[in-house]
Write a protein that binds this DNA or RNA. Structure first.
Lengths: 234, 234
DNA sequence: CGCGAACTTGACGATTTTCAAAGCGAGTGG
DNA sequence: CCACTCGCTTTGAAAATCGTCAAGTTCGCG
């Protein structure tokens, strides 16, 4: 009867956006650090095809916070973002997005049930992630936060290799990771060094991580189960 | 053509939920500290009529975080909440909610455009609040966070009195406020004492606040403009 | 090979948490 | 009506965590 109900709420991986939605927009190739405009009154919508995006907030000149992270299959709706100064949507890796306008999206959603349900699904994937991110930043220690992010990345953009090991790209720079986790870049670096020394993590080329024992890594954050449910590649 | 586009994204106050939506659910009176079930697989939806609700997360037994706050006109959709243990929806004041089931909601949304648009509006009010909350917790100092919350409450549930003063209920206990702001209850108490001593705040009966000079209070947080836009009673 | 950006590391300092104890308020039973 | 208890709040001193500043190192790239 209702498509949405068939998809368990723990479904983390995106179902493909309807073709009608993609056809309504234009394809944009992203380069790392490229900024994507949000439109004057929040009129743009982006659908991520490939790569990762960050939403940056600058409450004050000296403070930067990454308040959202978007993966392939996610939708960035400017209308759902707060109207604050210093809000930027930034590509953190090469990739590809489709851009369309909010009014166009709503017109489509009004007539096309598939679009409507895909949008609803996208939201059901993204909103819980924000809440968990908030709980992470708000109630976990520095190390637990870092591990939570590593786990998220390992599950999202990584592959299982062998014997419970996992290799993954780290699309964010240390600074970006720090700003995402509300840590100082220096502090983050120290924590990652400690993780390396304790043997649960190794880093190659600054952009690639490897967890020889992924289970052991997961045990370092109390939110492991929740993160696994939200980001598991099924 | 599209209702949504007529409502600026800064519109903070709820338009009334469609009658068709309310008729589909049952009315529940809340008492303070009452817990509202979210259903086994996230099947419940609550629409707040009166009072305020908190969404509590317990990542670990010792750590508590209020990750969402709901005011009249807001919708709590269990499907949009993360499936983590220790997630509780709790009334913080007396009030009234309407409960219905997710499938019922989706069925209504599929056939009734007014329901659809109201839901979308509700989301456009609530999602930005979470992002700002995240930026608040993540990048502001203790005092700035407290002021941000006081400002939010003063605008949401308070009244202007005279000469730029503002009186407001504080529906959260100190502990709840602290858990919302990721502060220790002791630290919060200290900060509020400092605010009182500096004259920008006074408190009566533990549940009611008064800002003799609301402008002066606002100047203490860098997110004042953003908060004002999101919570202003227009 | 050398430059610049990103990252790492150390020492110090500030804010916040922790732990403990005391004060206040509301509700209860005598 | 009062004394009592329980929970919430407030405050102080010590400890831990995290941030700041500065210097050094690694890495990618021309």
């Amino acid at each position: 009867m209702n498509m949405l109900c068939d998809i368990p709420k723990s479904a983390s991986q995106a179902s493909a956006p309807p073709a009608s939605l993609l056809k309504a927009g234009i394809v944009i190739a992203m380069r790392p650090r490229q900024r994507l405009g949000l439109g004057r009154d929040g009129e743009h919508v982006y659908i991520v095809r490939e790569g990762t995006l960050m939403l940056e907030a600058l409450p004050q000149p000296s403070a930067r916070q990454i308040i959202d992270l978007y993966y392939p299959g996610d939708a960035v709706r400017a209308q759902l973002l707060p109207s604050m100064s210093g809000l930027n949507l930034i590509a953190s890796t090469p990739g590809e997005v489709v851009r369309l306008s909010e009014p166009r999206l709503y017109a489509l959603a009004d007539t096309d049930a598939a679009v409507r349900h895909w949008l609803d699904d996208a939201l059901a994937r993204q909103y819980p992630r924000r809440l968990v991110h908030l709980a992470t930043v708000g109630s976990l220690s520095g190390e637990e936060r870092v591990v939570s992010l590593l786990m998220e990345l390992a599950l999202r953009v990584g592959e299982a290799t062998q014997n419970g090991a996992r290799a993954f790209d780290m699309p964010l720079s240390r600074t970006d990771m720090a700003d995402y986790l509300s840590l100082n870049a220096d502090t983050l670096s120290r924590i990652m060094s400690r993780l390396r020394q304790s043997g649960v993590l190794s880093v190659a080329n600054r952009g690639r991580g490897y967890a020889p024992n992924f289970e052991a890594l997961c045990r370092l954050t109390p939110l492991a189960d929740t993160i696994a449910r939200m980001h598991a590649t099924q």
